Amino acid sequence: MPRPEATPAVEVDAAHIVELERALARVAYLLTRVRRHDQAMVQCGLTMDRASVPLLRLLADADEPMRLGELATRLDVEAPHVSRQIQRLEKAGYVERVPDPDDRRAQRVRPTAAGRRAVEAVREVLRGWMREALADWTTEDLEALAVLNHRMVDDFLDHAEFIGDLGATVRDRPSRSA
């Protein structure tokens, strides 16, 4: 989908940016609330703490096993936090450590089959909530929302040096035509 002619940033209405930031903050809050996480875990039949879910999702989406340091960088958290979460996920059977082919002293982590099933179960619950919440939206509105959200994330990534490392990489980015 071709991008419309962009208005230069100096001409962007500050009120629109304020409202966009407020809307994004509301979405982030709604998606990361403890109660929402607890409800999702009950619906999935899983026991997993809130901090483990994004870590397991990142591993499930990775093309290959990842080092702990890379996970910490991608999630923008401290390495000891990732180490503790990996230990919990490993104990629960959701991840396993494998030798690092580039360094015999190091290990990488990958999801187990149970870990991949857990990620898909969480995603299905979240998609169900989205389907319910957006049931009255038209197909065209849903498509436009998805396209604009991908475009926004792409632009955030393009300007990451100004807003900090967002943890995502080019590999995570769907094509703008998607």
Rank of each mutant, 00 (worst) to 15 (best):
M48A: 15
M48L: 06
M48C: 04
D49G: 09
A51V: 02
A51F: 03
S52Y: 04
S52W: 01
V53T: 09
L55Y: 02
L56E: 04
R57T: 09
L58I: 03
A62M: 03
D63F: 10
E64W: 07
E64I: 12
P65L: 06
P65I: 04
M66H: 06
M66P: 02
R67H: 11
G69T: 15
E70H: 13
E70T: 15
L71E: 00
L75E: 09
V77H: 00
P80S: 08
H81D: 08
V82C: 06
Q87A: 15
Q87R: 15
R88E: 14
R88P: 07
R88S: 10
L89V: 01
K91E: 08
K91I: 08
V95L: 05
R97W: 09
V98S: 11
V98Y: 03
P99I: 11
P99G: 10
P101W: 04
D102L: 12
D103P: 08
A106K: 11
A106R: 07
Q107M: 13
Q107E: 15
R108D: 13
V109Y: 08
V109P: 02
R110L: 12
T112F: 04
T112K: 00
A113T: 14
A114V: 06
R117G: 10
R117N: 12
A118R: 01
A118L: 02
V119E: 02
V119Q: 03
V119N: 00
E120H: 07
A121V: 07
V122W: 01
V122P: 01
R123F: 01
R123N: 06
L126S: 03
L126A: 06
R127A: 08
W129V: 03
R131F: 03
A135D: 01
T138R: 03
T138S: 09
E140V: 08
E140Y: 07
D141M: 12
D141K: 13
